[in-house]
Design a protein around this nucleic acid. Sequence first.
DNA 1: ACCAATTTGTCCGTATGTATG
DNA 2: TCATACATACGGACAAATTGG
Lengths: 269, 269
Amino acid sequence: MQQEHGFNRIERAPAYRLVYDAIEREILAGRLRVGDPLPAEMQLAEQFGVNRSTVREGIRLLEQSGLVERDGGKRPRISLPHYLDLASSASRALILHSVTFRELWEASMVLEPAIAEDAARHANAAGLAELSANLAAMEASVVRFESGAEADVIEFVRLDRVFHEILATIAGNRVLALAHEPVISLFIPAGQLILPRLRTYRRVLEAHRHIFDCLNAKDHAKARLWMHKHMDDFRRAYEMTALSLDDPLDAVSLGVSLGGSAARDREKG
Amino acid sequence: MQQEHGFNRIERAPAYRLVYDAIEREILAGRLRVGDPLPAEMQLAEQFGVNRSTVREGIRLLEQSGLVERDGGKRPRISLPHYLDLASSASRALILHSVTFRELWEASMVLEPAIAEDAARHANAAGLAELSANLAAMEASVVRFESGAEADVIEFVRLDRVFHEILATIAGNRVLALAHEPVISLFIPAGQLILPRLRTYRRVLEAHRHIFDCLNAKDHAKARLWMHKHMDDFRRAYEMTALSLDDPLDAVSLGVSLGGSAARDREKG
DNA sequence: ACCAATTTGTCCGTATGTATG
DNA sequence: TCATACATACGGACAAATTGG
């Protein structure tokens, strides 16, 4: 750390990062457009005056940040990072930072009622149909539980998650949807721990039904209220188990899959 | 695409992704702990049975997702991705998806008042001191504007942003802070366009002052109200310019820097 | 402050499988 | 069907920086 001369610390970014930055700039400036194939690795290597291996490392950064998408062995193409995909990294970061269930719940008490209200304002036939199908599937799941069969908790919480994500889609605000995604994707695994103990499956289904009815009636005030109640139910259930609100969410106990969002799975299927 | 036999399509993930997944698992499972240096590239190459170049590509993915941090030419270390850092990719994604100012504003009307309310509940001496310093700096900035000097709009909006981020820190809910970050970091550049036209600098400062006073008095209801008003002011200002609420935010007009959050800069400095 | 071993950053060349025309 | 282009992956190499005595 000698400071013999007044020179500033010369910071030479690694070549692979310069490649990343350069291509990112091209994309953000619109000179490379979504869907365009990325130039060949050799060509990029020549243009930048670096080795092909270095170009590859830079492309990996683009890939991870979602700006480049690969489809099998084909040419990588420019792509928009789907904002919902970012949510899984956000969830992971929150877990690693030992976020408590209380923080999660408080955020959900802010976001979910707002989303329900917006959804009631913007509900359309297509969205209602999707919700309706989700409710039917959950009804079937609940019936299986009640008939004593050792039913599938994983499937139930998946349907729960999908319900909330359809709602966020209907609400039509992508900023809220982005904020909501990590909350839901951490909430739901917690439900996986709670539900088998309390067996409140039908109670969840009924709450969803009420919210659905409010959307149908375009009653946004009531939609907000029911969602508020629904989220508060969740907190009470959490407290009724051995779990404490102020314990950190734990990566292993949640067994969080960190996969892509269920919302995207819906789109693809 | 021959389907001669009943075999499923065998999907072989690229080797560099397997490297990424394997190391990610080790980190999430806690076998590699934060701060530990990553094993040497050659050693990993031997363990995984792949080439060193392949290992390097896998490490780039970890680097981009924030799980590995490099400090100059030193050994890369395991690191927690700071959740606020993820917000900048989120902002970028939202811009590329042509999110409208209306969506942004609606989200802020949900998040910011809730944050102000929480901040009033949890305000402590340290946080209030930080806010106080921010207000003083903004006061000085406003005085410069009023004295006719061609003052620094960039600096003003930076202080604006910092105010809101201090508030989010005081509120103490990291999930809300995560949700709030992309909203603020898109809001503020918009302010950069609006403020020079309307010259409502003092109005912004006064709103911040009122919110500060509410925190001091622990009046969370009033804090929420003032923040609500503050955000609504912003919408009106936006409408008063030539800009339309339903136009998409534009990457070039916003000139969004996509740098790290101001909140992190505060921590480091 | 110096030296030696280690490690990263970068480069070169090559082989193989696959996609596209 | 064949040929070309390209991505994937491998092996080896060297300079510069870091690390640890």
